[in-house]
């Protein structure tokens, strides 16, 4: 079972929900892996504090041109959708950072002058943390393209029965890549105009992807029903409301888990898990 935690707006509490849910499942003896797919700014390790036992480079294949064979016919340049190949006089130059690694240029070069090499875009780290298998990706600084690295992180779920996927913020390609294979998406929001506006965009996204989903309201304030009325209007279930509690904010600031720092909130994570289990197995 793959559970993804996403949000639209950043900083609403995705990592808090994802790490604590993974920890709860680990404590219950489930075979669970936490996958940090926010490869631009991975933070899960700051809370789960895993011991990392393996680091592997994530790469994408990029073209290498054999100048002795290249006639600068320009077929590859015309074909490339990403402008990663440019003809300059009698040579073709490769801009590897623009290449998506589709392999088209190599396939169609009439002179067979193109081969491929692996270009590193980041690393995948795997390890264990208090009963939870752990994997994250770290995009190299200056690297624009995160989806291939995210796909590599998602591959680390093979041995686990349950994967908890911590998605990046936003609604564009990195998020879509993280959610594509999920069985359930939990959207985390906060009861502010920005939080709810971006929740609306995230809802459009998960409905387009056609994945079962629900909402967790974080930093819920007593008496404020903005989030509930928004969710009722958009016909999405509110699964849990984590109260706006300074102890949670302070624990977060120090890298502590909610389950340990504020044990009274544990029941919310249990509710979240029971709901998802019911939805996915139903």
């Amino acid at each position: 079972m793959k559970i993804a935690i996403a949000s639209g707006k950043g900083g609403t509490g995705k990592t808090t929900v994802a790490t604590n849910l993974a920890l709860l499942l680990g404590e219950r003896g489930e075979n669970v892996v936490y996958l940090d797919c926010d490869v631009e700014e991975p933070n899960g390790h700051l809370f789960l504090k895993p011991s990392i036992d393996r680091r592997i480079a994530a790469t994408i294949p990029v073209p290498v041109i054999d100048e002795s064979k290249c006639t600068a016919c320009g077929e590859c340049v015309k074909f490339c959708q990403y402008n990663a190949l440019v003809r300059l006089g009698k040579t073709v130059m490769v801009f590897p950072e623009l290449c998506h690694g589709c392999g088209g240029c190599m396939l169609l070069c009439p002179q067979k002058a193109i081969s491929e090499r692996d270009r590193e875009i980041g690393i995948v780290e795997t390890g264990r943390a208090c009963g939870v298998c752990f994997a994250n990706g770290r995009l190299n600084i200056g690297e624009a393209m995160s989806p291939p690295l995210i796909r590599e992180v998602l591959r680390q779920s093979a041995a686990a029965a349950i994967a908890v996927i911590d998605a990046p913020p936003g609604t564009s390609c990195p998020v879509i890549t993280s959610l594509r294979t999920a069985d359930f998406v939990m959207l985390v929001t906060e009861p502010t105009p920005f939080g709810l506006h971006d929740l609306g965009m995230a809802l459009d996204m998960v409905r387009e992807l056609d994945v079962p989903h629900g909402v967790v309201v974080n930093r819920a304030e007593a008496g404020n029903i903005d989030a509930e009325s928004f969710c009722a209007q958009r016909q999405v279930a509110v699964i849990a409301q984590l109260p706006d509690d300074r102890r949670v904010a302070e624990a977060y600031s120090r890298g502590e888990m909610v389950l340990t720092a504020v044990p009274s909130l544990r029941r919310h994570f249990e509710t979240i898990w029971e709901y998802i289990r019911g939805q996915v197995h139903a």
Binding site: E40, E41, N43, L46, G142, Y252, S253
Partner: peptide, 21 residues
């Protein structure tokens, strides 16, 4: 940024990017 372990961690990476650019 914000005074949290995440804010600190992410600041290093975005500051690195600004420097690189």
């Amino acid at each position: 940024t914000e005074p949290t372990v995440s804010g600190d961690h992410d600041l290093r990476r975005i500051a690195g990017l600004a420097k690189q650019l």
